[in-house]
Design a protein around this nucleic acid. Sequence first.
DNA 1: TAGATTGTTAATCGATTAACAATC
DNA 2: TAGATTGTTAATCGATTAACAATC
Lengths: 220, 220
Amino acid sequence: MSKNGSISASVIKRLPRYYRFLGELKAQGVNRISSRELSQRMRLTASQIRQDLNCFGGFGQQGYGYHVDELRHEIGKILGVDRKFSTIMIGAGNLGRAIATHINFDTRGCQLEAIFDSNPALAGLKVGDLEVKPSEELAEYCKKNNPVVAVLCIPKASTQDTADTLVSLGVKAFWNFSHYDLSIGYDDIIVENVHLGDSLLTLTYGVNVLLNDGEDAENE
Amino acid sequence: MSKNGSISASVIKRLPRYYRFLGELKAQGVNRISSRELSQRMRLTASQIRQDLNCFGGFGQQGYGYHVDELRHEIGKILGVDRKFSTIMIGAGNLGRAIATHINFDTRGCQLEAIFDSNPALAGLKVGDLEVKPSEELAEYCKKNNPVVAVLCIPKASTQDTADTLVSLGVKAFWNFSHYDLSIGYDDIIVENVHLGDSLLTLTYGVNVLLNDGEDAENE
DNA sequence: TAGATTGTTAATCGATTAACAATC
DNA sequence: TAGATTGTTAATCGATTAACAATC
């Protein structure tokens, strides 16, 4: 049914948000919603919603709107929420441990199955249900279990080398938390860079503009 | 000098990345760079770089290019990296503690000065140099110290209420890590939503398309 | 000066919005 | 049937890219 064929990144980045809002509507017991009503809740236009959804198929019904749970289910299928992609994490520092315990991988198509750290002192440490493994076991683990997704919570200096190694071991996708642009260099490898530092800096810019009483107050 | 006047969000979101790359170039001892060379390193077009930079002023020199450190400094000033916006964190759970210790707020114009948590069991816990304070002290603290930025690492259920309270206490900007779209409802308040869950879901989509051997293999 | 590279204007491309006929 | 709301085409808007004169 899906009239796929390479959807624009702008559309794809909105899908998780649709999925989230539809989940909330479902939780609130809403069964039916029109693009207009959804657009008001999400602060975007009804046109955009209909345009976006029709990249994948006609999920609505004229004169009625969309069935909330059905639409949510369809978007979930498109995103792959019920897949079980074998996932590993590299780096069990503060951030890694927090991500591992805080993010619900299961409901997002990923199964976090192992955590590695190069610091031997961390080996054996419990993180959720998992025990941190030493990096020496990484290659063997990958050959045996063929993980598809790797979450990188390591310093930027080692990110490229680690990613190269993992690609050679068959990893296809990276969720990268280091301050380093990993996309560079690969082609049929999926990379999602998080860049928390850049996000904070964007906020700082906004505050700086908002409170621009500071040093340079030359008007015009 | 700055020919400001509301720059498009697309441009602003690229500024931290420019700043990051220029920092790396500086660290590598590169003094001078042309838009063409920078464009190759950053995987974008030289036109875009020149267009972006000229939103703020002419930082280059014809026939020469850009002075790396000077340009970095200018962008830093635009972003506000040397400001010291008083910042507090709400929520000292796994994620909050990791963000507090992992992110360098100082180099991004923010000073993290206090962490609050509603769980009394966490009061007094050391997070970096800070001690977790009980939420009861929040109002008094804000009245005394007037924090400008709040980092929200709390469950989505309490995000809106907490944000409302903080706005009434004078907070102007939120770095929001909960699975909730905070922008909704405010106007002259800056919000940067992180949405790690959405980011992972975007990755899952990519993997799902890449490895689309799964259930529905109807071709066209 | 000649060569290089910017700043900036014009052209293109893509994404968003508006409009409306199709249809439930 | 009449009313509502979709799916989809057309119009608009904004962002990216190309081109080139200005200038170091």
